[in-house]
């Protein structure tokens, strides 16, 4: 399924997310994700690359993976973090 969701979780700017998910409630897999919004991530092009690499990952653990990968890439971010992304996805799945 492709889910479109948006939200402004704690510590985040407005995140607009398009995510392709597979699997059931306890075993959801993020096949691909596109994250738009008014957040900051520097260098910007590295965020583009990070986003492209976020495929075939379990939703459980996605937040930690995102944050770790961002650190590895040397990204400085403001207004976005892994937990916020997952919170928006979960609110899209199950309601706020």
């Amino acid at each position: 399924m492709i889910l479109h969701c948006q939200g402004k979780p704690e510590g985040c700017k407005l995140l607009r997310i398009e995510v392709e998910l597979e699997g059931e409630q306890t075993n959801r897999i993020v096949r691909s994700i596109n994250i738009k919004g008014d957040f900051f991530a520097i260098p910007e092009e590295r965020f583009d690359a990070l986003e492209s690499s976020l495929s075939n990952l379990p939703l459980e653990g996605f937040a930690a993976f995102f944050d770790a990968r961002a650190r590895e890439q040397g990204l400085q971010m403001a207004g976005i973090h892994g937990e916020g992304i997952v919170a928006v996805i979960r609110s899209g799945l199950y309601g706020a």
């Binding site: 607009r16 738009k36 919004g37 957040f39 910007e44 965020f47």
Partner: peptide, 9 residues
């Protein structure tokens, strides 16, 4: 637009 925003959105 900010770098990460979508024009159509």
């Amino acid at each position: 637009l900010g770098y990460f925003q979508g024009a159509r959105q």
